[in-house]
Design a protein around this nucleic acid. Structure first.
Lengths: 360, 360
DNA sequence: GCAGTTTGCCAAAACGTTTTAGTAAGCTAT
DNA sequence: ATAGCTTACTAAAACGTTTTGGCAAACTGC
């Protein structure tokens, strides 16, 4: 009869029966309907009663049981973030920065974030489970690739979701992205205008759209300037940090004609810095700086030209857009987060016909 | 009557009424009791009925409504991780690594992680809310300080929790930690045995216990070797990454007698590497390497002596210990995660009387 | 053939809310 | 004075599970 591993005793450790709406009703000699409606701000309860209820709730330390609420309202006030757990999409340090913004916005909006990793074999099974067992109201999708199956699935089941980045179906869902194409177009344009004719581009994994769009932007700048595409050598790193930054920089510098290096992330630029210093050469460095708050870059500001953009702001925009969808306040919308340019020694912005938006 | 911002229509976008236990009962002409007991593996339901139920559940795509389950069982299968959102405890890249281990273990054990940030002013209010509104079964506490109020609170309310790290009350709760004291004792001992008489120690923020314990370990080694405490100069960084690693290394090297540098984290050692290279001196480097999977350190293995320990394993141990507590399978227990030593050029392990545990 | 046990199933209560569909009392306008 | 409206409240159903207590039928041992 009894099943193994099932607790038989009612009370869980130290959790003395908590105050319910019934206790409030008994205390105040009111119906539970009135308590509920008073607490939820309905207009058909008298002003003094509302105050009495609020007071008693405060005094007795009443907290509505969220699971009861969720059962009846069909709304959880939970948002899922599914982190990938396969070798390809390892845990990225940029993630925490976006998450910090998301968490702040979620707290402000009364939502919590349910964080999970998917199973390597079945990328979609977690999404499927959450959709079907009423665990969450919506999803945040990070690091999309082209034709991403997670996006296909969510479009299919019609649940609210928002994407950090974009794919080719971006008109059909809410997203938040930076102008990867435009930023790398501009940085490349800047380097060319400053006379650099042999540029190395240390990019990320172009399996992901953010890196693909960055390459496309850089290439477009070359083409628009009438340069041959081999004026830029692209090196790809699958890791956001580590040996890659150093090693790829050494590789880049093996070509003595190279005078400028474009990095897809400041983390790699920082590592590559050692190789640049070691070479003794005068190399112009530009990088996309995602404002990682845990790393203090003030020491690199003299040497690095940076396009900056706030991942926290992106996180905040993501959750705001998603909450808007969950509460049915309008259609899914795309948001471009702004970037500013910080020019360091070696790259002169004045030579550009149209100037870049400067940092404040 | 109607309250603003409340949705009035029943059906949420695209979520066509899902299959319930009643639908299964109707389909099979059984009571819902039997369905429930069949699905939950009770022994008082016949073998063939159990099969019929399982089959029908599969066919109709039945998924139990978790909120209904949570309401009646008083168990959520959710664990809270509260991330700090003040200036002191910024978002740390080590976090994602621990979290990766936690997520894997949680998935395996049938739990989800509820991630939140606290409000800077009220560190405990999120804990209080979760304790009182039935959102979670337990808590993971990270980066404890001495006499940490979160630990005091959780001990007080008697909810299951586990700490990544320890404070002076570690006998009263479950925890997972590395041997910070012992590891830095050993690294210091190793440096002294190799003849280094002026050592710099680039440590983290000693406001946190992990950094405090590391300093204490290093100091104990000095004392045991009969060395004056000024044989080691301690430099503290409040940031896990950034200028600090480079700058503090420059500061350390300003003393020409320094022949060895001990880093509290590999991230800082990597940054400091540039300064060491720049100085042209022969410096022995040792560091605590937390095995960050997003950074590839193979290039540094020749130069850095490292104590290694897996943050993922720590994460897995954390969630395993917590689940054990939540399911009332034994008393809270402390776990020390093992460390191994990798010796690089410049630091010879043979000179030690008792050898260090080598990496495989 | 009968008391006692085992097997397989079920009705109903419970969990703690929100919401629907009221109602009774007090006002207002005639 | 009365019909109609407004105000302030409420009983009961519903959400989708688990669990309690019980019961009829089928077996068992004698």
């Amino acid at each position: 009869m009894a099943q193994l591993g099932k607790r038989r005793d009612g009370r869980s450790a130290g959790a003395g029966r908590s105050v319910t709406i019934k206790d409030l009703a008994a205390e105040l000699k009111l119906s539970i309907t009135t308590i509920s409606r008073a607490l939820n701000g309905y207009s058909d309860v008298g002003e003094k009663t509302r105050l009495r209820v609020a007071e008693a709730a405060q005094k007795l330390g009443y907290r509505p049981n969220r699971n009861a609420q969720r059962l009846v309202t069909q709304r959880t006030h939970n948002i899922a973030w599914v982190q990938s757990d396969n070798d390809r999409k390892f845990v990225d340090p940029h993630f925490v920065e976006v998450m910090a913004g998301v968490l702040r916005g979620a707290r402000a909006g009364g939502y919590d974030i349910l964080l999970t990793s998917d199973t390597p074999e079945h990328e979609l099974s977690v999404y499927d489970r959450y959709v079907n067992d009423n665990s969450v109201d919506g999803f945040i999708v990070d690091l999309p690739r082209e034709g991403d199956p997670r996006i296909s699935y969510l479009l299919d089941v019609g649940r609210p979701f928002v994407v950090h980045g974009r794919d080719d179906r971006s008109s059909q869902y809410g997203w938040v992205d930076i102008d990867n194409f435009g930023n790398f177009y501009n940085l490349t344009r800047l380097m060319l205008a400053n006379g650099h004719r042999h540029i190395a581009f240390v990019n990320g994994d172009e399996h992901f759209n953010y890196a693909r769009h960055r390459r496309l932007g850089a290439m477009a700048a070359l083409a628009d300037a009438g340069m041959p595409s081999d004026a830029m050598k692209v090196l790809n790193s699958l890791h956001p940090m580590g040996e890659a930054g150093f090693k790829l920089t050494e590789t880049a510098l093996a070509d003595p004609r190279v005078t400028a290096i474009l990095y897809s992330s400041t983390l790699m630029a920082v590592e590559g810095h050692a190789a640049v210093l070691g070479s003794g050469r005068d190399i112009a460095v530009a990088t996309m700086d995602d404002e990682l708050h845990y790393i203090d870059l003030s020491g690199y500001a003299r040497q690095f030209t940076m396009v900056r953009s706030s991942l926290r702001d992106a996180g905040a925009a993501l959750i705001a857009e998603l909450i808007r969808q969950c509460e049915e306040k309008g259609e899914p919308t795309g948001h471009l987060v702004p970037s500013t340019y910080h020019l360091a020694q070696g790259l002169d912005g004045a030579v550009l016909k149209e100037p870049l938006p400067k940092a404040s």
